[in-house]
Computed example of a mutant assay.
Amino acid sequence: MITGHRGAAALAPENTLAGIQKAFESGIEWIEIDTQLSADNIPVIIHDKTVRRCTNGKGRVGELTLSELKTLDAGSWFSNEFAGETIPTLKETLLACQENGLNMNLEIKIHNEHEVKPLVEKVVETVKHLNFPVETLLFSSFSHTALAYCQDLYPEVRRGFVTKHKPSNMLDTIKPLNLYSLHIDHRILNETLAKSIKEMGLILMIWTLNDPKKIDKFTAWGVDNIITDKPNIF
């Protein structure tokens, strides 16, 4: 029912191995993390287009090699406790999930459409190389194109569409993607929309809910999974 957002973003620096460890210690079964490519085409775990917000460096992720990314401190911005934490690779993160028995909701982070094909190909290659169990993996994305390409390359892995908008034709446009789930900003979800999503047979996830007092309302609407920065209090 509970997914740790970017690991456990209120407890440790987001999208780091330390965050995954905190999520595991919270007792949850799922984490959500973001992946994109380094300049040398290695899938790494980071959300933003640039490294400025969550490291001591600067520059675009896609213009820095893995070795350059690994020199950055991705923990001190959060607290001194996590000084020296690095940006993990997708491979490192998959191994950490296997070690801790965690399921992974892997967001394919697309900042430009030309990134779709190389990123999805490298993600699928990495997942298959490690024989990561498909039943413990979910590909998600804001990008229809990325989800369609995931469907082509690795249809065995479930797929979820992420959205922060509520266009009237959204549910019609995602039907061809043969999705498992829909992940929606909890602030725009209402009971009518929730009912429509559930009637399509989709698993309904909301993000990013950090107030446990609101759980009853959302579960009454049929929400199946809550993505939160604070898995420990949920």
Rank of each mutant, 00 (worst) to 15 (best):
T219S: 04
I197Y: 06
D73L: 04
T71P: 03
L189D: 01
L189N: 04
T136K: 09
I33Q: 04
E14D: 04
I2Y: 13
F78K: 00
F78T: 00
R60W: 15
G101Y: 01
W207M: 06
A220S: 14
T228R: 09
N190S: 06
G4Y: 11
V51D: 07
N169W: 09
I28K: 15
D48F: 01
N190Y: 11
N100P: 09
T126R: 06
I87D: 12
N100V: 13
K128R: 13
N210T: 07
K122G: 00
L72S: 14
F132D: 07
V127W: 08
F82G: 02
E121M: 09
H114L: 11
P88R: 06
E25Q: 10
Q98E: 11
F218T: 14
E121Q: 14
D34Q: 11
A18W: 01
E25Y: 02
D211N: 11
A83Q: 11
N131F: 13
D211V: 00
L138D: 03
T219K: 15
E156F: 04
I188Y: 02
E92T: 06
S168K: 08
Q36V: 01
G57D: 15
N232E: 15
E32M: 08
K198I: 08
H114T: 15
H165K: 05
E25F: 05
K198F: 02
C97N: 13
H114C: 06
T50M: 15
G27A: 14
I108S: 03
I188E: 11
P43K: 00
L202T: 08
D185Y: 15
L106A: 12
I28A: 14
I233C: 03
K217F: 11
D34N: 09
A146C: 03
P118F: 15
L90S: 00
F139A: 03
K166S: 11
F24K: 02
E125M: 12
I233W: 12
L69H: 10
K198W: 00
R6H: 08
R53M: 07
E81I: 10
M1L: 14
T192D: 12
E99C: 01
S143D: 01
T208F: 05
R159C: 02
L171Q: 07
E32V: 08
R158A: 09
E125L: 14
E125D: 10
E14C: 03
E191D: 13
